[in-house]
Write a protein that binds this DNA or RNA. Structure first.
Length: 268
DNA sequence: AGACAAGCCTGTACGC
DNA sequence: TGCGTACAGGCTTGTC
């Protein structure tokens, strides 16, 4: 999504903003949001964890989080408006950026300042983004040291590592050959190395393949196209099917309030 | 009809 | 007391 924004909207100027949804813009008033965005030039496309960051020419940042069901779509303003369109941002090349979100968990806001990390202060609590920065085995081991939580819960904790959701946590742990219910603080050096490598490998490959679109087809790119990474899933959504590594049926369990998919034979 | 999926915040309970 | 952690509930709607 960030790459799509970089290609399609950077350099464009905002020339009309309409907020119709009641919940999408909730950290500030819709009027303040419209004012902060109107007339601004979009100068860069960034991301930290699951947050998209579009830099504005006055130093502010348009921040977007899609949560479960959000979509950002770039279309002609004349194309039919999908149900659950909550925000429309007109651009000076005659296109329109739309935020569509049936479950309304997603959000947009304009962040005025930057913290010491260069990120908007609203995002200061997020952990390291392992695609933007190198997450070495040693650093990962430090993050996990002493934690009694499960590995799965640790990977999902955005304050430790930013950007891993339920699906990718399962894929990462399978690749690392680690059980999701292992205690996070129990890894030896080789296991930390495998986990660090798997985090990077899975996320980078998923980005290359433009993400995972599940059966509900909620995740699509700016052009509305499906991703391709779901075809590579080794465990997620494959309960009862053979493990791609060893053939043992994939198990599905409940852990940290989430579904966890794993191979009981080759993940230890 | 109703469980379920997801991300993340909040509230509460617990052990050390 | 206070911290880290675990767990449940809430938000929401489309899908099974």
């Amino acid at each position: 999504m960030r790459r799509g924004l970089e290609r399609a909207v950077i350099g464009r100027r905002v020339d009309g903003v309409v907020v119709t949804g009641k919940r999408t813009v909730r950290r500030q008033s819709p009027d303040d949001f419209v004012t902060a965005l109107s007339g601004r030039k979009l100068s860069e496309a960034g991301r930290h964890g699951k947050f998209l960051l579009v830099g504005l020419d006055d130093g502010a940042t348009l921040v977007a989080h899609l949560r479960m069901s959000g979509q950002l779509l770039l279309t002609s303003p004349a194309s039919p408006l999908p149900a659950h369109t909550h925000v429309r941002i007109g651009l000076d090349d005659g296109t329109e950026l739309r935020f569509v979100d049936p479950r309304t968990f997603g959000e947009l806001f304009v962040a005025a300042g930057h913290g010491p990390s260069g990120l908007p202060v609203e995002l200061a609590a997020l952990g390291v983004d392992p695609v933007r920065e190198r997450l070495t085995p040693a650093r990962l081991a430090r993050l996990l040291a002493g934690r009694r939580t499960s590995l799965k819960a640790a990977l999902l904790d955005q304050h430790l590592i930013a950007g891993i959701g339920n699906l990718y946590a399962d894929e990462i742990l399978h690749r690392a050959r680690l059980r999701p219910d292992r205690a996070a603080g129990s890894l030896d050096a080789d296991e930390s190395r495998r986990l660090a490598r798997s985090i990077r490998a899975v996320l980078e490959r998923a980005v290359e393949l433009r993400g995972s679109s599940l059966r509900d087809a909620r995740y699509v790119d700016l052009a509305g196209e499906l991703g391709d990474y779901q075809r590579r899933h080794a465990v997620y959504g494959r309960a009862g099917e053979p493990c791609r590594r060893c053939g043992t049926p994939v198990e599905r369990a409940r852990l940290a309030g989430r579904s966890a998919h794993f191979c009981p034979s080759c993940q230890r």
